[in-house]
Simulated assay, not measured.
Amino acid sequence: MHIVVLVKQVPATDNVRLDPEKGIMIRGAKDNIINPLDENAVAEAVRIKALLPEATVTALAMGPEAAREVLREAAARGADRGVLLSGRAYAGADTIATSRALAAAIKKLSPVDLVLAGERATDGETGQTGPMVAARLDMPVVTYVRKVDWQDGVLQVERIVEDGYEQVEVTPPALLTVVKDINKPRPPSLKRRLKALKMEVPVWGPEDLALAANELGLKGSPTRVVKVFSPRLVRQTRMFGENETTSAIDELLRQLTARNVV
């Protein structure tokens, strides 16, 4: 079995910045981490790999050269190799252009039996990329997965739904997006980290995926951010003393009445 895990380099949550002119995320090398839910996806891929003697795990990322580090992190956690999609043509991609590039890379990595991804990324918070990749690959997709079992060539999947859990059977190839409840990733050992540092990470550009430049990045992204701004919080507070209870209640009722609440 060949398992591909989609991983992403994201800013630490206190370091998320947007370009107000272009409406895109500012991505630098500083204070970037592996997307937390992708850690769960990698851990689950490695767990499934342990159940199947000849299984291999490939970590796949799209981003700047600095994103090699999240692929090495995935390798330290048990992935066998990593592939990076990088180059100026990929910059500024929305979920549509991103899914197009990732799907093309997965086709190049074929045969692929299972694709795992975090349910969402902490920078965009859309949860769209995984299902879009599955649609482009014509694969069945199961989202919000909290448990996976492998029985006689069939995936027994438990997913979170609004009123509880749902049991699903799916035959590979398939794509699953996982939630944090699926496992508790362990930090890699020093030996694994040192080995991962030496791992060669091939970089694929648009020409390697047979994609035109206008299908990728900002040019291939129909989504546009109209405006980026910080919300302004305005509070008008009136304080009442302990001997002004009656006045406070009267004022509260007046304000609620004025807003048609009561």
Rank of each mutant, 00 (worst) to 15 (best):
K107S: 13
P140C: 03
I26A: 03
E65G: 12
L85H: 07
G124C: 08
K30V: 12
G82K: 09
T58H: 05
A59V: 02
P64L: 10
A101M: 00
M62A: 13
A91V: 13
E44V: 09
L116S: 10
I33M: 11
T122Q: 10
P64Q: 10
L114V: 11
A74I: 14
E125A: 09
T98D: 00
G28L: 01
P140D: 01
S86I: 06
R81Q: 14
R136F: 02
Y90T: 06
G82W: 07
A74N: 10
T95E: 09
D123C: 00
L52R: 09
K108H: 11
A67V: 01
E73Q: 13
V115I: 15
I33T: 06
G92C: 08
K108C: 03
A55P: 03
R47F: 03
A135Q: 13
T98G: 05
K30A: 15
V112I: 12
A104W: 04
A29F: 01
Q128Y: 05
A61C: 14
P20L: 09
V42E: 00
P20V: 08
K22F: 12
E54V: 11
L114N: 06
A105P: 06
A101W: 05
N35S: 15
E119Y: 07
A135M: 07
A76V: 08
A121L: 04
M62T: 04
A59E: 08
P64H: 00
A105I: 15
R47Q: 06
P140L: 02
A41N: 04
D138R: 11
T122W: 02
T126R: 04
M62H: 01
L116F: 05
I33W: 01
L71H: 07
T126K: 01
N35Y: 02
E73A: 13
R81G: 00
A105E: 05
A55W: 11
V112R: 06
K108M: 10
G23W: 11
M132L: 14
M25L: 15
R136P: 02
P140N: 14
M139R: 01
N40E: 03
V70K: 07
I34K: 00
R68G: 12
T126C: 13
M132Q: 12
L109E: 11
M139I: 01
V46E: 04
L37D: 05
D123F: 08
G63Y: 05
V70T: 13
A41R: 01
N40S: 07
D123E: 09
R72W: 04
T56R: 15
A66R: 08
P111R: 12
P20S: 06
P53H: 11
E65W: 08
G82E: 11
P64V: 04
